[in-house]
Nucleic acid binder design. Structure first.
Length: 260
RNA sequence: GUUCUAGUCU
């Protein structure tokens, strides 16, 4: 059963939902994990109709089963459907709250997200990150920074995604000062080993008029991937250094061995 | 063995 469940997961991750279903149908014993995995297969590939159908026929459901469906609706920006699941589920954990918040931010409803955030009985780093990235995605950059500041006053440790989103907000605001502070914050926590953070830093400095800092961050970083390269190339182009940008672009072709 | 946030440019 463990092996078959792992195979269902593998097929699902490759988008091979029908293959996954064949394995599921052939199982002689299906426990809750197997059912949940198959629902994930449908939900994470956007097949919410099939996901709901299978979900409805489950002999037993747990919080995960509901969370999977909720998350599927959140990804599909179906806020009304998500809300219905959220309201009807017998128990909610922090993941349920996070998914419901995500459903709001994905649908552009930051007011709704904010209300849930305040009401949540428990928050983890993902709750905070979902809100901050939600603000950034909805172009409410100052709100994103405010929430990052609030994390600090509430002594919640930011992680690399918090910093990434906050730097992106600074880049959009052209706020070099705040961006530099976040740079320092990230350095102190060793977050500059993360390509996400490095990319966001390069981009922030480039957009805030500190292309030299961008280059410094870029050259010091050992594990450059395609995103870092793109950030530095477009940063240089933005500053009218089309020549250097093109030079680096050529270098990129030679050095980029492990794209994502 | 199963569920939540994911960086650049577009």
């Amino acid at each position: 059963v463990y092996v078959q469940t792992a195979v269902i997961k593998m097929y699902s991750e490759l988008g091979l939902v029908d293959e996954a279903r064949q394995v599921f149908d052939k199982m002689t014993e299906r426990d809750l994990v197997a059912w949940n995995s198959m629902v994930v297969g449908y939900a994470s590939n956007g097949h919410m109709g099939a996901a709901i159908e299978l979900f409805s026929s489950m002999p037993v459901k747990d919080v995960l089963s509901y969370n999977i469906i909720l998350s599927g609706f959140a990804d599909g920006k179906r806020i009304e459907s998500a809300r219905r699941v959220f309201d009807e589920m017998p128990d909610r954990d922090v993941i349920s709250w996070n998914s419901m918040i995500l459903a709001c931010t994905n649908a552009g409803d930051m007011a709704g997200a904010c209300e849930l955030f305040e009401k949540a009985p428990e928050r983890n780093i993902i709750t905070w990150n979902t809100m901050i990235t939600g603000y950034v995605q909805n172009e409410l950059y100052a709100e994103a920074i405010n929430l990052f500041d609030r994390m600090k006053t509430e002594n919640v440790e930011a992680d690399y995604l918090t910093v990434t989103a906050s730097l992106s907000a600074c880049a959009h605001l052209r706020s070099l000062e705040t961006g530099t502070q976040i740079d320092e914050y990230a350095r102190n926590r060793g977050l500059l080993s993360k390509p996400h953070v490095v990319t966001a830093l390069i981009d922030m400095y480039a957009k805030c008029g500190g292309i030299k800092n961008s280059l410094e961050v870029f050259y010091k970083f050992r594990h450059k991937d395609i995103f870092c390269w793109n950030a530095i190339v477009s940063g240089l182009a933005l500053h009218g250094h089309g020549d250097s940008a093109l030079k680096l672009f050529d270098e990129m072709q030679e050095n980029c061995l492990k794209p994502d």
